[in-house]
């Protein structure tokens, strides 16, 4: 009987937890153990690949919502949501003109959790809004002033990238709205100075007298669309840009952007 009691007491949750925490597997996975001291807290932060991207300590000023509006964070969160939902959408969306439109219909009608499409779209709108609010906030709080000018520049590029992501993503449903919006947008590229065949200076770029270099089949618009009209080539090109090209560049610049903030003393630190 007492042996049974011993056995049972050995199986109590506390003892069990202790045994697990002392085991080799546990100690291999969790190098530091439960962070019960400052030092341990710091070690945990520095020792984990995901956590070590974050600062160990954050100043109190950094959580001042009335200062920061948390817009940058929300933007980044939305970016992650968009990446995740976008990835899921890639399982069901085919970027060809035969399938693009009907795949979107199928996502709405029949695919389980096809609501990802709606989340992706709304998230994109929300991200653009939050990016603008973030910029507005940064301006209002003067957080662009030296030595932070470079970061502001990076942020502007990120803004452009966000808008480009929206632009490229807009075409992907391949409905009337998409196609005509991109037609209008890409037609603007025609008017680029020098690089657009309807822009000023296009016919200055010639090799000699009569070998034009910039024409409707060799200008910025053509480069953007992969053709002279918004067709299957444009769809594919936009898809690749939207899913791979632009997110990679944006991610890279975001890393620079966040690092710069840390380097300058953390978010909304005193100037």
């Amino acid at each position: 009987m007492s042996q049974l009691k011993d056995l049972l007491s050995n199986l109590s949750p506390a003892k069990l937890g202790e045994a697990i925490q002392k085991s080799q597997i546990y100690r291999s996975v969790f190098r530091v153990g439960v962070p019960v001291s400052d030092r341990k807290r710091m070690l945990v932060m520095l020792g984990n690949v995901f956590l070590h991207l974050h600062p160990v300590k954050v100043r109190k000023s950094g959580i001042r919502l009335r200062f920061t509006w948390c817009m940058g964070g929300i933007t980044f969160f939305l970016f992650l949501v968009l990446t995740f939902t976008g990835l899921l959408l890639m399982f069901y969306y085919r970027p060809t003109i035969e399938y693009a439109y009907v795949d979107i219909i199928d996502l709405r009608e029949q695919v389980p959790l096809g609501i990802m499409r709606e989340i992706h779209r709304w998230g994109a709108h929300a991200m653009v809004i939050s990016v603008w609010l973030h910029m507005f906030r940064v301006f209002m709080t003067g957080s662009y002033k030296p030595p932070r000018e470079f970061n502001w520049g990076v942020g502007v590029i990120l803004l452009v990238l966000t808008l480009l992501l929206s632009f490229t993503g807009y075409l992907l449903p391949w409905d009337q709205l998409a196609m005509w919006a991109i037609t209008v947008g890409s037609n603007m590229a025609r008017a680029t100075p020098f690089a657009g065949y309807e822009g000023p200076g296009a016919n200055l770029l010639t090799l000699g007298e009569n070998i034009p270099l910039i024409s409707s089949t060799s200008d910025a618009r053509f480069a953007l669309l992969g053709g002279t009209r918004v067709g299957e080539m444009a769809l594919l090109r936009f898809y690749v840009l939207h899913c791979v090209g632009l997110p990679l560049v944006a991610g890279f610049l975001m890393a620079v952007h966040f690092w710069r903030i840390r380097r300058d003393g953390g978010i909304s630190g005193p100037l």
């Binding site: 003109i97 399938y99 439109y101 009907v102 029949q110 009337q176």
Partner: peptide, 24 residues
């Protein structure tokens, strides 16, 4: 389940293209 009949020879007029019908 969603039941569907896929028709290769009858087309639905999606934007700019005729795609095979999938009747659900």
């Amino acid at each position: 389940t969603v039941n569907q009949i896929q028709l290769q020879n009858l087309h639905y007029d999606a934007p700019f293209l005729q795609v095979p019908r999938v009747d659900r």
